[in-house]
Nucleic acid binder design. Structure first.
Lengths: 241, 241
DNA sequence: GTCATAAGGTATGGGTGATGACCATTGATT
DNA sequence: AATCAATGGTCATCACCCATACCTTATGAC
């Protein structure tokens, strides 16, 4: 009575209810915020009470998380009114072999495929629905920000542009999932050099993408986005051989 | 110093680390299995010890979950060797207003959009990559099963077909996310009648979809899937006005 | 008929994290 | 200079959940 077949059908759903204890999950999420660059260096995270509230963990547990981040030099806490937890400039210590270690712990193909699906889907939805004035302006602004960006800030502003598109897609689940997968992509990208040629190509694609979205050209937007993702994917696969 | 803008950027990431206590999350996942019809009526779930192990919760907590399901008449426990937790035929008590109640607690647009993105993405990936013999056969078999299905089983086998496509996409994250969103869709669909006309149309689309995927026609597969999802979406939106 | 086995049913002790109150510090405002 | 308010820092209590062991029941194998 081997029900292995039936069991296999269950594997996608019957996953661990929690990916670790509350501490680990909270750490992961705050690292996501940092990896996505949602809070620029020098700015601060929400106050402990608010953070704990949002993550639905106790302040005690949250503080243990912040302690770790502080010990690693990623953030700094200041007391008093107008104090808070401030994001520091990353010391960038991705030693050699760091990339390989990261690759070993995740399924890169899974990440790249899922990312493409979400990005292309978001672009398609935005273009098909059309964006009203305010939203269109939001997208244009995010694009413009990437143009006159110092090299060190490019990754961050690029992430924000894509995240903006995801938000405009009208599906909060999609946005949340994209944030998660993009944080993983950024983690991988941190392990390889940032080439100016790739960057310029990216910028052309970004411009074409935004144009297509604002024109309501869904097929065009999807196609540009697909190529854009394929570029990153090829780059990463190349460095991971 | 209103940082509302900055805070808003964080909302996609700073979600509750846990959607409730372990009990609630486990209940949700097992309900997912039932809603997806992964275990046909009369068959049994994995043994308590294995289930608890997979969900990473204690058997005590799992048993509380099963107790609830048993009290609601969804499953039945039998002791002894070859015993287990068996799935019962649903008494189908979706009383009036049930649909409206469900709709009130979820963001239907979010669900429908996210579903479309995943389905279209999965179809595209499968078609673009091509499926080897075994996988192609798996897809054909899932399609065939829906053809000669009794009406009462249609929803279940349709779900399995789509889930199969998601699995073949090569992204386990995509598969897991699709399972989650499809469970929600099924929950909504349970609230509206199953029309034979829609069903026949669905079957035509399924056939065209599988053909396109097996032909490696990515654009075609995506287009068929998009229409397929749009159909369901229109149906649901119609009943939810 | 007896036994082994695999399943559900039960009891207990210990650890982790949540709750809520309180203290300490800082800088803007008055 | 005094005050206030928002923030980080600390602690005691308690509910929830886990790990583990053991008991009970039913069925096939011998």
């Amino acid at each position: 009575m081997a029900e292995i077949g039936a069991d296999d059908r269950l594997t996608p759903v019957l996953r661990p209810v929690r990916a670790g204890n509350g501490f680990e999950e909270a750490l992961e999420q705050i690292l996501q915020v940092l990896r996505l660059g949602l809070v620029p260096h020098g700015e601060r995270l929400p106050a402990e009470r608010e953070l704990a509230d949002r993550l639905r963990i106790s302040r005690v547990t949250l503080r243990e998380v912040l302690k770790v981040l502080q010990d690693q030099g990623l953030v700094e806490s200041r007391r008093g009114r107008y104090g808070g937890t401030f994001v520091l400039d990353r010391p960038r210590p991705p030693g050699e072999g760091e990339l390989r270690r990261r690759v070993a712990s995740v399924d890169v193909e899974d990440i790249l495929r899922f990312r493409e699906v979400l990005e292309v889907g978001a672009a398609g939805l935005c273009a098909a629905d059309g964006l009203d004035g305010a939203r269109a302006e939001q997208l244009r602004a995010a694009l413009a920000a990437t143009h006159d960006a110092p090299l060190a800030e490019y990754r961050r502003l690029d992430t924000l542009l894509h995240l903006t598109l995801a938000e405009l897609s009208g599906s909060s689940t999609l946005t949340a999932q994209y944030a998660a997968v993009r944080a993983q992509v950024n983690d991988l990208l941190d392990g390889i050099p940032l080439l100016v040629r790739n960057l310029e190509h990216s910028q052309q694609q970004h411009t074409a993408l935004v144009e297509a979205v604002l024109d309501g050209d869904a097929d065009g937007a999807r196609e540009v986005m697909r190529e854009h993702c394929a570029g990153t994917a090829a780059l990463l696969r190349g460095f991971l051989t």
